[in-house]
Amino acid sequence: MHIEFLRFSLPDVEPLVDFLTEEEWPYHVGTQDRETVRRRAVEGLYDNEETRTFWVLVDGEHAGLVKLQDLNDDTPLFDLRIRQAWRERGIGTKAVAWLTGYLFTELPGISRIEGTTRQDNHAMRAIFRKSGYAKESHYREAWPAPDGTRYDSIGYAILRRDWLSGTVTPPDWHDEPACSDR
Rank of each mutant, 00 (worst) to 15 (best):
E88R: 15
E88G: 04
R89K: 15
G90I: 11
G90Q: 09
I91K: 00
I91E: 00
G92H: 06
K94H: 10
A97F: 08
W98R: 02
W98P: 03
W98F: 12
W98C: 02
L99A: 02
T100C: 06
G101L: 09
Y102N: 02
F104Y: 05
F104L: 07
T105Y: 02
T105C: 01
T105Q: 09
T105D: 12
T105G: 08
L107M: 10
L107P: 03
L107K: 14
G109S: 08
I110S: 04
I110R: 05
S111T: 14
R112L: 10
E114N: 14
E114I: 06
E114L: 11
T116L: 00
N121I: 04
A123C: 03
A123T: 05
A123G: 05
M124N: 00
A126Y: 00
A126H: 11
A126M: 05
I127E: 10
F128N: 01
F128Y: 09
R129S: 07
K130C: 03
K130F: 02
K130S: 06
E136W: 05
Y139L: 15
R140D: 00
R140M: 02
R140Q: 07
E141A: 15
E141I: 05
A142L: 03
A142Y: 06
A142S: 09
W143H: 10
A145W: 10
P146A: 05
D147W: 03
D147F: 05
D147T: 05
T149Y: 06
Y151S: 04
Y151C: 00
D152P: 02
D152R: 01
D152W: 01
S153W: 01
S153F: 00
G155V: 05
A157E: 09
I158S: 01
I158L: 01
I158Y: 01
L159R: 13
R160Y: 11
R161N: 09
D162R: 11
L164Y: 01
S165P: 11
T167G: 14
T167N: 15
T167H: 15
T167A: 15
V168A: 09
T169L: 07
P170E: 15
P171C: 03
W173Q: 06
W173H: 12
H174G: 08
D175I: 07
D175K: 11
E176G: 12
P177E: 01
A178M: 12
C179E: 14
C179F: 12
